[in-house]
Design a protein around this nucleic acid. Structure first.
Length: 821
RNA sequence: GCGGUCUUGGUGAAAUUGGUAGACACGUUAGAUUCAAAAUCUAAUGUCCUAAAAAGACUUACAGGUUCAAGUCCUGUAGACCGUACCA
């Protein structure tokens, strides 16, 4: 038994790949293929097996496409701006830049040791001013185009930190650093991008994407287009629009509810009600929807009233924590009889419940109902609309509202405009200057990038607000002293266009050269987790469309195909993560088993779109395979391939090609295992031995390079062409026969076992009775050898057969009668 | 609350359009090899009935339904997970 020095082999080939630059690409005449994994946030703890799985999935695909003669762009970069670096700065007193660069270097080293075939010359980091300069540039372009505006929006505020907290930094309504400090909500003027301008296109084009259906459904629901009616309610002499999909229930409206986070809530709160409302608002724990839903459905009376435009009834306005501020107008008309949440709210605050729709077969009793009736029926208590079917009433009532100029038909989206302002240091500075005289001024393009100052103090507020050298500047218009914007951009801005920058990552005069983007884009295969279904993937799609309309691009969708990999779980069954403490490090696995073994194991456990469970025992199976492979190739002597091997090989090439194309790597590995066993049993030609290595090389690139060289070839197998198959060599009948014979042999051994155990007899001769047309597939010497007993085979219609117990009657097609004596 | 996903042997899992459930691997057991062990090889291995299944019954979280046929489609129940807009 030879031991394989995996690590030596790995190092050897990783070095050779790097020095020969074989994975670096340029635009050429070949057909391009762009494979991209969602770039990582370089966390301080480095990458674990879960990341390794993600990149292995992409690397296999990139290697496969490369061997199929595509010009493959396969780059890697780092989403290196963001909260964790800043948290580390606060907690560990380390500068975010240093923290980030250390993390990136660690990531690169680890990724290289996984044997990933990236074009490293295209690497990018979003924390590099040469990158975020273009964030600022695009921000200004969007501003010019009218895609950006300012509006008040709530933030989580910690008094002790004197700063805004991310939802993640709020734990049970308390600050992450100050356990006793209740988080407050504060309204701040912030920057928004009009993503809703593209809502329709984002929705419509979902259908043309080759993405998993569930992701497409999630996106559609996230955009959430719905048709309805906007009704104007009179509040203190002003018309407030209210969006509803149920104008048929207008006669049943007994109160209005405004969102607790509504910009104009305070205008509605009367002096008398102020203390009550304030007390209620304090219960809000953070701006996150999750936290909001965890709260009991509650509200408070604002003290104001509105007038129902149809009935002219005076109805109270409440504020409630179940109303979403950014949807519709942030205020709803409540119909307790026909909406369950309104019903519960009305019960809680003793608000009247008025029935305006009855089911077809009986009348509801307002005193007796225990829940809202949300089904269809006929109108009641609705004056001239009584007895109308409610579906028709939606149309009729809307018509009348339009006639009276009290409402209109509208479309609403759940999709909100994108709040890009962040009150943090480690992000792209928003290129805006505030001047007392000239107001809000964009930074001139020639002054970009606005770099983050290096000398800063952490711990109290946003470091940018206290940094004079950053803050103080001159107004670009009147040249008087002015102040810079201290908000930075949401990092989703960075990740919305990075896939474009890879095509031209060193360009210092433009974000990218149009011709390069035209050659490489769109991304043919994007790979990443389903957690990005709604946010990153919508922002990136939006960005593409916005840049298209600004004349930078000439395509509509950034990611033609999308693959969602599953998550890696540790041996304890939980998702692998540092905080769980169940991480497996690639370095350690590599030392023990070799990285090829780990790659093979990771993709063979289960279908890559499902969650994968790591198993220290399970990887042994892959190790055995690698040893078997290595040993076989070192001792193999090429001759001429047998028919059986040729059939199996050609069929396997065909099937594995399909499997890899469909990301069914687990099935491909199974076929490779079966194929190797045939190679071990049967004679094979040099060409076929080479084909096997080619099929395996996307999965195990190092050992296959090594064996490719050992059997007398020049490097690199990574640059070889994918094997083709010859349909005429695939012999399905041969495989069927093999199955039949195996089944028969297993039956015989079973009978032998029983006879030995129970009767204590050991038959000497075996007789098989088979269908006459199947006679040719049973080879007597082979059978005798495999059973280790003399075996005779008869056709059931053979008059001279030896069959004392008439077992030939038992024979069926594919299943012979068996007699032993 | 809204939206999405999952549940198959002792374990990880397969099952392309609804068509032989459990491929492949781990583990376990037995045998071979060995002074012995490890490694390797060979065989068996869903559950139950049975002396024995080559020839019985049952079996894909649970309860129903559609169908000649359901792990797969539909309805409901239970449990687990993901996203929910300042984590990326």
């Amino acid at each position: 038994m030879t031991t394989i020095n995996f690590n030596k082999i790995e190092k050897k080939w990783q070095d050779r790949w790097e020095t020969s630059k074989i994975f670096e690409v340029k635009e050429n005449k070949k057909q391009k293929y762009y494979v991209l994994e969602m770039f990582p946030y370089p966390s301080g703890s480095g990458l674990h097996m879960g990341h390794a799985l993600n990149y292995t999935i992409g690397d296999i695909f990139a290697r496969f496409k490369r061997m199929n003669n595509f010009n493959v762009l396969y780059p890697m970069g780092y989403d290196s701006l963001g909260l964790p670096a800043e948290n580390a700065a606060i907690k560990e007193k380390q500068h975010p830049k240093k923290f980030t660069n250390n993390s990136i270097n660690k990531f690169i080293k680890q990724q290289k040791s996984l044997g990933l075939s990236y074009d490293w010359s295209r690497m990018l980091k979003t924390s590099d001013p040469e990158y975020y300069k273009w964030n600022q540039y695009f921000f200004l372009k969007f501003l010019e185009k009218g895609l950006i505006y300012r509006k008040k929006a709530p933030v989580n505020w910690c008094k002790k930190c004197d700063t805004v907290l991310a939802n993640e930094q709020v734990h049970n309504g308390k600050c992450w650093r100050h356990e006793n400090q209740e988080v407050e909500l504060k309204q701040l003027e912030q920057w928004f991008i009009k993503t809703t301008k593209y809502a329709d296109e984002l929705l419509e084009r979902v259908d043309e994407l080759e993405w998993p259906e569930r992701i497409k459904t999630m996106q559609k629901n996230w955009i959430g287009k719905s048709h309805g009616t906007e009704i104007l309610f009179d509040v203190n002499g002003e018309k407030w629009p209210i969006f509803t999909t149920r104008p048929d229930t207008i006669y049943g409206v007994t109160f209005l509810v405004i969102a607790t986070q509504h910009e104009r809530l305070t205008e509605l709160v009367t002096k008398e009600q102020l203390p009550k409302v304030k007390a209620f608002l304090k219960k809000a724990k953070s701006t996150s929807q999750k936290d909001l839903d965890a709260l009991e459905k509650e509200g408070a009376f604002t003290g104001s009233y509105a007038t129902n435009p149809i009935t002219n009834e005076k109805i109270p306005i409440y504020t409630g924590n179940f109303v979403v501020a950014d949807y519709g107008s942030g205020m709803i008309m409540a119909v307790p009889a026909h909406d369950q949440r309104d019903f519960e709210f009305a019960k809680k605050y003793s608000i009247p419940i008025k029935i305006v729709i009855n089911p077809e077969d009986y009348d509801l009793n307002p005193e007796a109902i225990t829940r809202a009736f949300t089904g269809d029926g006929r109108l009641t208590n609705s004056e001239e609309f009584n007895n109308l079917k409610n579906r028709e009433a939606i149309e009729e009532i809307t018509k009348q509202l339009i006639k009276k100029k009290l409402g209109k038909k509208t479309t609403q989206y759940k999709l909100k405009d994108w709040l890009v302002s962040r009150q943090r240091y480690w992000g792209t500075p928003i290129p805006i200057i505030y001047c007392d005289d000239c107001n809000i001024q964009p930074v001139p393009e020639k002054d970009l990038p606005i770099k983050l100052p290096e000398k800063i103090t952490f711990g109290k507020g946003n470091p940018l607000t206290t940094n004079k050298s950053f803050l103080e500047t001159k107004c670009p218009k009147c040249k008087k002293p002015a102040k810079r914007e201290t908000d930075t951009m949401d990092t989703f801005f960075d990740s919305s266009w990075y896939y474009l920058r890879y095509t031209d990552n060193k360009n210092s005069t433009k974000p990218f050269q149009e011709s390069k983007v035209k050659y490489w884009l769109p991304v043919d295969q994007y790979i990443g987790g389903a957690e990005h279904a709604c946010m990153h993937l919508i922002y990136a799609r939006f960005f593409t469309k916005a840049l298209r309309d600004l004349g930078f691009l000439s395509f509509d969708e950034p990611f033609t195909k999308l693959f969602n990999q599953g998550m890696l779980h540790g041996e304890d069954g939980f998702v692998m993560s540092k905080s769980r403490g169940n991480v497996i490090l690639p370095e350690e696995v590599s030392k023990k088993h070799g990285i090829d073994t780990a790659r093979l194991f990771l993709v063979s456990v289960a279908s890559p779109d499902k969650d994968i469970h790591w198993s220290e025992k399970g990887i042994e199976g892959s190790t055995r395979f690698m040893k078997k492979l290595h040993e076989f190739y070192l001792s193999s002597k090429p001759t001429k391939s047998s028919r059986r091997l040729e059939s199996k090989l050609n069929k396997t090439i065909k099937l594995i090609t399909e499997d890899i194309t469909n990301f069914k790597y687990n099935l491909a590995v199974i076929k490779l295992r079966e194929l190797l066993d045939i190679f071990i049993e049967e004679p094979s030609s040099k060409k076929d031995l080479e084909s096997f290595l080619k099929l395996l090389t996307p999965f195990c690139p190092h050992i296959t390079e090594e064996l490719w060289e050992k059997i007398g070839n020049k490097p690199f197998i990574s640059l070889q062409s994918w094997p083709t198959y010859d349909e005429s060599k695939i012999d399905e009948a041969l495989e069927k026969q093999e199955q039949t014979i195996n089944k028969t042999l297993s039956d015989i051994s079973n009978i032998l076992k029983i006879m030995k155990e129970k009767q204590n007899t050991e038959p000497k001769n075996i007789y098989l009775y088979v269908m006459p047309n199947e006679l040719k597939i049973y080879n007597e010497p082979t059978l005798s050898k495999r059973i280790n007993k003399p075996t005779k085979v008869f056709a059931v219609n053979d008059k001279n057969k030896y069959d004392p117990e008439n077992k030939s009657k038992k024979a069926k097609p594919g299943k012979p009668g068996i007699y032993l004596e």
